[in-house]
Design a binder for these strands. Structure first.
Lengths: 126, 126
DNA sequence: TTCAAAATTAGTAATGATTACTATTATTGA
DNA sequence: TCAATAATAGTAATCATTACTAATTTTGAA
């Protein structure tokens, strides 16, 4: 994987925006700093970075794939009102892969937990 | 929601095919029995049935949305080789919504757990 | 440093999944 | 029985993502 300005900025954008953005959101955020960036380049780099395990892709939230610079084990909660994505700590459901193996004999390479509901902020907006 | 032959067959097809089919797969399965069915009708009915809680939509597996006639709480394992979807019993991760509330104060209306890995069948194919 | 091979890019076309639209047909309840 | 409502088939449109291509950039060996 050769160096490129574009890939560096994709990563930096993801690290500086804790909103679990989609590829399109990363694209829009990056355009401020690099107006000529191509959407296809953003997709390609996000996929490459995920492939190398430098970032994580989160699917199953809502339609499109989201990306996460945080590669520590953790889960996600998506608000069905505002669509914001919140981190959920690992201790909410530890050792799921191990439990899966115990109960079913299946070996998971990875897994996601996606909670859906209304976040506290949206609840308070009566 | 009025009765329709098409909706009845969508549900029947889902119940008789335990493969967690996508909308397109339901469409193909139904065409044997109802060749004039429209893909848009299949999508509309699957969404309506899911809306009413009669079936479940499973997202986050692989690209497209899958549907499940089983609305008991349970999880899924998708094989990254053959793309088959397996059911994972609820006891692998019980009370996740409650744990979530305890640890974070967030209230989940629903949640999915999607495991990914190579299934035992594909493992045995050397 | 120089330069050619390999990687990356911007821009755009193509694909795949899903939804929107529309004119026609089926269902329903008074 | 009949008009209001819902549902349908067929197709166009949309959205997310990937594929393609000619031009540019990176890289490491000479």
């Amino acid at each position: 994987m050769n160096y490129s300005k574009q890939r560096e900025l994709v990563l930096k954008t993801l690290q500086e925006n804790m909103i679990h953005p989609t590829a399109d959101q990363v694209y829009e955020l990056m355009r401020k700093e690099m107006p000529k960036i191509s959407l296809a380049t953003v997709y390609r780099n996000l996929n490459q970075l995920a492939e190398k395990g430098i970032i994580h892709r989160i699917s199953g939230l809502n339609g499109s794939v989201h990306f996460d610079h945080n590669i520590e084990k953790h889960y996600h909660f998506i608000c069905t009102k505002c669509n914001k994505v919140y981190d959920v700590p690992y201790r909410v459901a530890p050792d799921l892969a191990q439990k899966l193996a115990e109960y079913t004999g299946l070996e998971a390479e990875s897994y996601d937990v996606a909670f859906r509901g209304i976040c506290n902020h949206c609840k308070n907006l009566n």
